[in-house]
Design a binder for these strands. Structure first.
Length: 497
RNA sequence: GGGCCGUUAACUCAGUUGGUAGAGUAUCUGCCUUUUAAGCAGAGAGCCGCUGGUUCGAGUCCAGCACGGCCCA
């Protein structure tokens, strides 16, 4: 229980009040009140009516909500209560309420959840209000809410105690509702096109499908180490082998890496795969997906604002080959880029120190990250990535050092990664072996060998395209939020103490 | 991992060259039947993030640590 000593004054008062209520037989946490309406019912139902109509019709509402403000007089009280959908003013008049109920209502605190039954009317200042005829305590608040005017600003508390953030900062609720709408729209888009939603293992023996450090866990009964997945990719492609031709998975991935405004250790990823399609088909599909999202979320308006930049999502989007982008956007000379030695010199001059295990392709992507990616504000596809950094992509038929792959950038951030899938088991095995070499040379993020995946490819995987889209970043884009923590309900933080 | 910034009442924030800790909101006690950042009068409320150091004296200066934010790797 609570030791009175370590509580602030307000909490002591509330506990005292709670005790007093209980002594009077007033339950603090009853669950017997039937709530028939929401604040939005009042607003849509009574809002359009004239003052005279409201008086004539006396529309009754039965509501519940959290008290967000109290303005109390001797014989009348105004309150604002808030439910999931909004706020409404309540007016309690001494001569309109049972004497005991009015006395009780006088003792309500900001933060309490209450039950109100009454009739809609408009006050002198024309605010739609419920004149209470019955009122009751539903849940007693013991901890004071943040100040009503400035609200809760402390970001640490906002993230640690998201429930408080959601109570006080209503725009935060809107962000997370929009997140849900985005996820549902993405699902609808894919389902409408015949993609089958599937669930593959989050706990994997071999963490594959991406280059990243995994989280390790342990299964007691089997006595084996398992990894939280860094990507579902290899399992989804096993399903292509199995005969499913269009599949997708939209769920959590886990990467054991740093935390930043762009990275949370667990994040939500969409991956989808289509047999007999190519990465070029998927560029078109991706443009269609974003157009669809704008229809669903933005009234079809293809222009959105992100952190002060206007972004025009009208297709077709710009396309550059990877090497082309380094020359035209990065401003590097072809001569330098084609030569490993010169590329390494250039990288060093830019403060990038090449690792022993990093080849030409890897260095080029590091240059890209610094000199090209931040400049890709408008939606841009970058195609034909170096083979070295694409261990699961199909080799380009004309240029065997490059792959049939694209990444999509918007607002200077990678939004999607897609490629025609490598389905030649011999080539795949060779690529895995290359990755093992890099691993031995010290690359902790190199891809693991997955023998069963090779075995699956040996049965024959149809040619296919696959794509991954980071949902958190997508939500950031559509909600104009600068940090990934603003679109994840409970972002990972260090323990408080 | 590095740099910069922040941490003072429940919340939002002040705090002067180092000299007894401040405001508004919230809380409590009065008054008040159409208020809305209600109002008026009064009262209470602090591990100044933590640990050390300098000093007669530290919220303030110095060092270390913790947590958070932004930027960089």
């Amino acid at each position: 229980m609570y030791t009175m000593e370590d509580l602030n004054l307000v909490m002591k008062e509330r506990l005292k009040k709670a005790q007093m209520f209980e002594e009077q037989g007033i339950p603090l946490y009853p669950n017997t009140y039937k709530v028939l309406h929401k604040t939005k019912d009042v607003i849509t139902g009574a809002g359009p009516k004239s003052d005279e109509e409201l008086e004539r019709e006396s529309m009754r509402f039965v509501l519940a909500g959290r008290i967000m403000a109290i303005r109390s007089f001797g014989k009348s009280i105004f309150m604002h209560i808030q439910d999931e959908f909004g706020r409404i003013q309540i007016y309690l008049q001494k001569n309109k309420l049972d004497a005991e109920k009015f006395k009780l209502a006088k003792k309500f605190d900001v933060g309490d959840i209450i039950y109100v039954e009454g009739v809609a009317f408009r006050t002198k200042t024309k605010e739609l209000t419920i004149l209470a005829e019955d009122v009751a305590l539903i849940t007693k608040n013991l901890r004071p809410l943040p100040e009503k005017y400035h609200g809760l600003k402390d970001v640490e508390i906002r993230y640690r105690q998201r429930y408080l953030d959601l109570i006080v900062n209503t725009h935060v609720r809107e962000v997370f509702k929009k997140r849900t709408e985005i996820v549902q729209s993405v699902r609808k888009f894919l389902c409408d096109r015949g993609f089958l939603e599937v669930e593959t293992p989050m706990m994997q023996l071999i963490p594959g499908g991406a280059t990243a450090k995994p989280f390790k866990t342990f299964h007691n009964a089997l006595g084996i180490e398992l990894y939280l997945r860094i990507a579902p990719e290899l399992y989804l492609k096993r399903l292509l082998v199995g005969g499913f031709e269009k599949v997708f998975e939209l769920n959590r991935n886990f990467r054991n890496e740093g935390i930043s405004t762009q990275h949370n250790p667990e994040f939500t990823m969409l991956e989808f795969y289509e047999a007999y399609a190519t990465y070029e088909d998927f560029m078109k599909l991706t443009e269609e997906l974003f157009t669809f999202l704008c229809e669903q979320l933005n009234n079809g308006n293809l222009k959105i604002t992100y952190q002060g930049n206007e972004i025009d999502l009208t297709p077709p989007w710009k396309r550059y080959r990877f090497m082309e982008s380094l020359e035209q956007i990065g401003g590097f000379s072809e001569d330098t880029l084609k030569d490993f030695g010169k590329t390494a010199e250039l990288a060093k001059s830019m403060g990038i120190k090449p690792e022993k295990y990093e080849g030409h392709g890897k260095l080029l992507t590091k240059l890209f990250d610094v000199a090209v990616e931040p400049k890709l504000i408008q939606p841009t596809f970058i195609t034909h990535y170096p083979l070295e950094v694409s261990p699961l992509s199909r080799r380009n038929d004309m240029e065997p050092d490059f792959v049939d792959r694209f990444e999509l950038f918007i607002a200077g951030r990678e939004m999607a990664n897609a490629f025609s899938e490598l389905n030649d088991p011999r080539d795949q095995k060779e690529r895995f072996l290359k990755q093992l070499e890099a691993k031995r040379a010290g690359d902790e993020e190199a891809h693991e060998m997955d023998e069963d995946y090779i075995r699956a490819l040996e049965y024959g995987m149809p040619p296919a395209a696959g794509e991954g889209i980071g949902i958190d970043r997508l939500v950031m884009l559509f909600t104009d939020m600068p940090s990934i923590r603003d679109v994840i309900l409970f972002p990972l933080l260090k323990p408080e103490k």
